[in-house]
Amino acid sequence: MLLSSLHNPWYISELHILLRLLLALLLGGLVGFEREQSKHAAGLRTNILVCLGSCLLMLLSMYGFSAFVDEPNVRVDPARLAAAVITGIGFLGAGTILFTGKSITGLTTAASLWVVSAIGLAVGAGFYFASAVTTIMVLVTLWAFNKLEKRYISAKKEHLLKIKINHYSQAMLEINSLLVERKIVMRKMLLEECEDDGKGAEKGEQIILQFYITLPKSEALLVLLDKIKHLEGVRWVSSE
Rank of each mutant, 00 (worst) to 15 (best):
M186D: 09
S238N: 11
S239F: 06
L209F: 12
K147I: 10
G233C: 11
A41E: 10
A171H: 01
A130M: 03
S169D: 01
Y152R: 07
Y11L: 06
E202K: 11
V180M: 11
L23Y: 09
L161Q: 07
I104G: 02
S131L: 03
Y11F: 15
E232W: 00
I208F: 00
S5E: 13
E36I: 08
L191G: 10
R182Y: 03
I89V: 15
K203I: 01
L19R: 03
S177A: 15
R151E: 03
R20D: 01
L139A: 13
I163S: 05
E195P: 05
G88V: 02
S131D: 03
I89A: 06
D196A: 14
E202M: 06
L161K: 09
L26Y: 06
L44R: 09
E193P: 14
T135L: 05
L60T: 14
S112C: 12
G101W: 11
L52G: 02
V116W: 09
L21Q: 07
V140H: 05
L27C: 11
N73W: 10
E193V: 11
C55V: 02
V180I: 13
P9L: 11
L179M: 15
E174K: 08
G198M: 03
L3A: 13
W10C: 04
L19W: 12
G233K: 04
S239A: 15
F127C: 00
L224D: 00
E174W: 07
E193W: 04
V237W: 00
C194V: 13
T96I: 00
A220S: 01
L22Q: 06
L15C: 04
W114R: 13
G124C: 09
N8Y: 14
V50N: 03
L22V: 01
A24D: 03
K188T: 14
G124M: 07
I48K: 08
L59D: 12
E202I: 00
L209M: 13
L173V: 06
V69W: 01
S154E: 11
L57N: 06
V31L: 00
L142A: 08
A118D: 04
I89F: 08
G233W: 05
S112D: 07
A110E: 05
Y212M: 12
M186S: 15
V234N: 09
W114E: 11
V223D: 10
T46E: 10
G64M: 04
G93K: 05
F99A: 09
A220W: 06
A82W: 01
D226R: 02
E174V: 02
S169N: 05
K147N: 10
L23S: 00
I12T: 04
F68K: 09
L107T: 02
G64W: 10
G198W: 10
V50K: 09
S61D: 05
Y212H: 15
T214K: 12
T87G: 15
